[in-house]
Computed example of a mutant assay.
Amino acid sequence: MNIQTANHLFSNGTLSEMYKAGFITEKFFSYREIYLWVHSQMETRKLSKNKAVIEAQGKFQKDERTIWRAINSFSGTDTLVSPL
């Protein structure tokens, strides 16, 4: 799912209803927050994606692979994009 679709569904309450009905888990909201934070850091502080991912690890207390999964889940790619 791309981020624009997710943001639209979030703003009109559809995601909350889907969560209440059990169709999606909290992980979806976590991944969305991580994606938005990383993107924001890249835009406002002009960080590289790799640097933003490293900082996100500390902020969200998540493994680097989890941060990359969150980014990729909203970027419209099926493959994991990583500096490795």
Rank of each mutant, 00 (worst) to 15 (best):
M1P: 11
M1Y: 04
N2T: 10
N2H: 06
N2I: 08
I3T: 04
Q4I: 10
Q4N: 04
A6Y: 01
N7M: 08
N7V: 15
L9E: 06
L9R: 02
L9G: 00
F10P: 00
F10Y: 15
N12G: 08
T14C: 04
S16E: 03
K20P: 05
K20L: 14
A21M: 04
G22P: 14
T25A: 02
T25S: 10
T25H: 05
K27M: 06
S30A: 02
Y31H: 13
Y31N: 09
R32A: 11
E33K: 15
I34D: 01
L36F: 03
W37F: 15
V38L: 08
H39V: 08
Q41V: 06
E43D: 11
E43R: 09
T44Y: 07
T44S: 13
R45P: 03
K46G: 07
K46Q: 12
K46I: 13
N50Y: 11
K51N: 00
K51W: 02
K51Q: 00
V53K: 07
I54D: 14
I54G: 07
I54E: 10
E55H: 14
A56C: 08
G58M: 06
G58A: 15
K59S: 06
K59F: 01
F60A: 04
Q61I: 05
Q61G: 03
D63H: 05
E64T: 12
E64K: 09
R65N: 12
R65W: 10
I67E: 00
A70W: 00
A70R: 08
A70V: 03
A70E: 01
I71T: 04
I71A: 09
S73D: 07
S73V: 01
G76V: 01
G76P: 02
T77A: 09
T77N: 07
T77F: 00
D78G: 02
D78E: 13
T79S: 13
T79K: 10
L80N: 05
L80M: 13
V81S: 14
L84A: 14
L84Y: 05
